[in-house]
């Protein structure tokens, strides 16, 4: 990401790499950061190998075995159709993780690009882009996602589109303010006075500044994406049943809560909480670490 296009600069003192490595080193000295990464690794592992680990077919109906409480046969019990909750959770994690990563990555690229453009070009470009961002931000997130979802129909890609559109303004804003905060810095002026081109300033001076805060936002955004995706499915406009999805599984269990069959909703929810906590901890740790490396 930080590599040099000027070949002979690579040999020595490629400070950004060292600063980056320093940040990584500090990150892994932080217990919170380590826990977060460990949780993430478990989830990635489940996402990759989940289908092989799952003892049952997540879609197989087994009405005689319905509403079984957790036991050795069914670790997390069974739901109203007798499907094994544990197996469904394993499959759902794969789905939700790929949803979150895909959606937030798309949002990241789009948002950072627009933010840099707006901040650097200023004037009409800035106004135009930020107005659109403001309008996107002026809907409460879930309701906007609902509107998108019913406009193009529920499904995997709908959720991705909705979540990525929702995350664009955040990235754009952060990237833009990073640009604005550095654009008038004296070292930029110094570079201009040495004859630097716009592109040089953009890529050598401004982009690196925007990277840090947007990466923090990326980590936090992943957590948020998982919650939004789950919420959409919970409301029935996300991933359509019977595909296992953590939010939709909570809906499945909603009607049984009153009668005490807690496991159908609680386990999927717990798995949302763990990973979202991990993403948030990651974001916080990256923030702490980069604060330190920059300010020292």
């Amino acid at each position: 990401m930080f590599s040099e296009s000027i070949p002979f600069m690579n040999t020595k003192g490629s400070h950004q790499r060292s600063q980056f490595m320093e940040a990584v080193r500090l990150y892994f000295r932080n217990p919170t950061g380590i826990v977060a990464v460990a949780v993430l690794m478990v989830y990635v592992f489940i996402a990759v190998f989940g289908p092989r680990l799952s003892p049952y077919n997540p879609l197989a109906l087994n009405l005689p075995d319905r509403l079984q409480p957790p036991s050795l046969a069914h670790l997390f019990g069974t739901d109203g159709y007798g499907r094994d909750v544990f197996s469904r959770v394993l499959y759902a994690i794969r789905l939700d993780m790929s949803l979150a990563f895909l959606a937030v990555s798309i949002g990241y690229v789009l948002g950072v690009f627009l933010g840099l453009l707006a901040g650097y070009m200023g004037k009409i470009t800035d106004h135009g882009i930020m107005r659109v961002m403001d309008i996107l931000l002026s809907f409460p997130s879930i309701l906007f996602a609902i509107a998108v979802a019913i406009a193009i129909g529920a499904g995997f890609w709908t959720v991705i589109i909705a979540v990525s559109i929702l995350s664009v303004p955040g990235f754009a804003r952060v990237a833009r303010s990073a640009v604005l905060s550095t654009k008038n810095d004296l070292y930029i002026l110094a570079a201009i006075s040495q004859g630097a081109s716009r592109w040089h300033i953009m890529f050598r001076h401004i982009l690196p500044v925007a990277i840090t805060p947007t990466i923090i936002l990326y980590a936090l955004g992943l957590g948020n994406a998982i919650i939004v995706a789950a919420s959409l499915s919970f409301l029935g406009v996300g991933i359509p049943p019977p595909t296992p999805e953590l939010g939709a599984m909570i809906t499945d269990g909603l009607q049984y809560v009153i009668s005490g069959q807690w496991w159908i909703s609680i386990f999927p929810g717990l798995f949302i909480v763990f990973i979202v906590v991990a993403f948030n901890m990651m974001g916080d740790t990256i923030r702490e670490v980069t604060d330190v490396t920059l300010r020292r």
Binding site: S231, I250, G253, I258, I266, I272, V273, V277
Partner: peptide, 30 residues
């Protein structure tokens, strides 16, 4: 607060119903 921002609203509400209505019976039916 880390927990607070990481829990889906609807899930923690279900947990609360489970505890306060289903088990403790101090809350009204939802």
């Amino acid at each position: 607060s880390l927990l607070g921002i990481s829990m889906p609203v609807f899930w923690i509400e279900i947990v609360m119903i489970l505890i306060f209505y289903t088990y403790l019976g101090v809350a009204p039916a939802p």
